[in-house]
Design a protein around this nucleic acid. Sequence first.
DNA 1: AAGTGGTCTAGACCACGTT
DNA 2: ACGTGGTCTAGACCACTTG
Lengths: 239, 239
Amino acid sequence: MIKYEMIANKIRERIQKGEYAEDTLIPDQVTLSKEFGVSRMTVKKAMDILAMEGLIFRKRGSGTYVKKNALLNSSDSNAMEYEGLTKQLSGYKVEGKAISFNVEFPDEKIREALQLEKNDPVYNIVRLRLVDGKPYVIEHTYFPTALVPGLTEEILNKSVYEFIHQNLGLSFGGAYRKIQAVKPSEYDKKYLACQENDPVLEVEQIVHLEDGTPFEYSRSRNRYDTRSYTIVDIQRRQK
Amino acid sequence: MIKYEMIANKIRERIQKGEYAEDTLIPDQVTLSKEFGVSRMTVKKAMDILAMEGLIFRKRGSGTYVKKNALLNSSDSNAMEYEGLTKQLSGYKVEGKAISFNVEFPDEKIREALQLEKNDPVYNIVRLRLVDGKPYVIEHTYFPTALVPGLTEEILNKSVYEFIHQNLGLSFGGAYRKIQAVKPSEYDKKYLACQENDPVLEVEQIVHLEDGTPFEYSRSRNRYDTRSYTIVDIQRRQK
DNA sequence: AAGTGGTCTAGACCACGTT
DNA sequence: ACGTGGTCTAGACCACTTG
């Protein structure tokens, strides 16, 4: 439907198929605008997308080039993901198990993270995820009850995010994350089967709605030997 | 000079000063285009920048709003930074100390990360950073010698990145990072003064040039109690 | 000098929310 | 019905690189 998106898709496909080889020029914007029967502005907008994805780079006066290793880096723009054995996880059995599900008044730290008043309650959920029967991560999650009315344990087992999007009509606007190495707690030792001197990778996260309202605070505590956090950081603005 | 950038700067300033309050509408694009004497397309491009920075969000048919907590999240778009005591580090003495500086043939892993051939040499640099006399991080860094001809220990103590930009005329195009919690090595225990069961936060990083050439491979090993990694992730494309 | 990508315009139509 | 932001055009000028 949207022209610049369709053009971006086609060019991306050509790069992936090798029709536009890495480290070479692709046709200039005027040529492409004639090929696709659109204005040059529309072609440029398509190119902006591919540049944000890290597939191409442009030199004024020179032309538009396919990056070396475009295919390696071609994961979604600014994608961030956990990686571990999760990578080749297709054949494994992934389980989620709720350890606890309560409503409570949060402590000061969580109140500040979620921008709540003194008497605003939150859901406090602790879940353990196992892969192939082995523990992987414990997630401690807090939602303001006011934002997710009618949350049940059943919904938790499906997708809270889908529920919010479908039933409440809300969208996400980003997240703040903090990653640390920490020593295992008693909780970690019990559920993650950590040894005393096994480190734990903790990802602390505040997720926001589109309008900036804090919506979820969570801490994921990951076994050090099975999970890592990866970031693809693409330079967006040249000076 | 560039109009849409100047307009973005002015609007950003108004948000920061509270002239456009959080969680309220700002003037529509037609009004703003009249105020600044530009076309609406130019105003929209300015708004695109502020949306990427997480300061505003837009609803078709409704208008453009300042996000809640715009000022909190207003750190540079997609900024990533180490944080720790580094936060309030203005008053402290930061030192860097080179532990070793060699040229060698890299092992397979580094050869793959830097996309090198069998006989391409690299600089192998190990540096320790101290704050207020206490060890903070050990950085193991590898550069292909072919990309940084004439690197000296003196340049290392200033800024390698500036040297590359100034003297070699090269620009950066992004990075790939992987963050893990690991157990301390003998090296860590010796230089970071880690105890046997202190975890270490390792940041593995491949930095690329603008054209996609891998340029630096490094591993930073951080004391767990003084450093963490933070990420601001802003949603860019709504579906 | 020619060709490239970056910016900007004035106007048009559309999709969507609000009224 | 009206106002909003999103897309798109045809053409213009500029900054820059390359021959």
